[in-house]
């Protein structure tokens, strides 16, 4: 069984120093097993200025088993799948320790954004680009950050406008876009399915 007492304490702790760390963890519903983490893109990286959402689901053995984390926001990074958002990070696998918390895990994910490890890639295409055409990589990563990780970015405004023109309410459009990490097609699907 998940130790909900500890999860509660972790959430309190996290919200207490949110201003300092910039890291936010909030429950997705009233069930504490599914949460959403938010990390700011590290300064001085192509992810700067973006806000990245990470889906967290806690296994029954938490904190003795690692939490499952996956990027909900699309991100261009050698160790993160550009398709699924899966993260390749040792502390989320065999290096997990029960002494780590959701906050420390998210901090590690944030650190991963600053320091990619192309030799141990999750996304081979991105890793190749990172090694061979670093300039292209930086541009793509920046473009993806602009397009998907910035709610207020121009790209998003255009998407909102296009979707509104299709006849959806603007509030719904915005929440749908946010929920799917800015992907216009996924947002449309979500809006259509109600």
């Amino acid at each position: 069984m998940i130790d909900f007492g500890r999860v509660q304490k972790e959430l309190q702790e996290c919200s207490r120093d949110m201003a300092a760390s910039g890291i936010k963890v909030s429950p997705k519903s009233d069930n504490l097993a599914r949460l959403v983490g938010t990390i700011p893109g590290p300064i001085g990286t192509p992810y700067e200025g973006g806000t990245f959402q990470i889906d967290i689901s806690l296994p029954d053995g938490y904190p003795f088993e690692p939490p499952k984390m996956q990027f909900a926001t699309k991100v261009w990074h050698p160790n993160i799948s550009s398709q699924s958002g899966a993260i390749c990070l040792d502390i989320l696998k065999d290096q997990w320790s029960p002494a780590l918390t959701l906050k420390t895990a998210l901090l590690s994910v944030q650190a991963l954004l600053s320091a990619p490890e192309p030799d141990d890639p999750q996304d081979a295409v991105v890793a190749q680009q990172y090694i061979r055409e670093n300039q292209t990589f930086l541009a793509t990563a920046r473009y993806w950050t602009e397009s998907f990780a910035k709610a207020s970015s121009l790209g998003v405004e255009e998407k909102v406008q296009r979707l509104v023109e299709m006849g959806f309410a603007e509030a719904h459009v915005r929440s749908a876009l946010e929920a799917v990490g800015g992907d216009e097609n996924l947002a449309l699907e979500k809006l259509c399915s109600g």
Binding site: G5, R6, P98, A99
Partner: peptide, 14 residues
Amino acid sequence: SPLGSTITCDICMD
């Protein structure tokens, strides 16, 4: 630690 004292466990945070 001396007997009778309490320790905060870093895992369960109790």
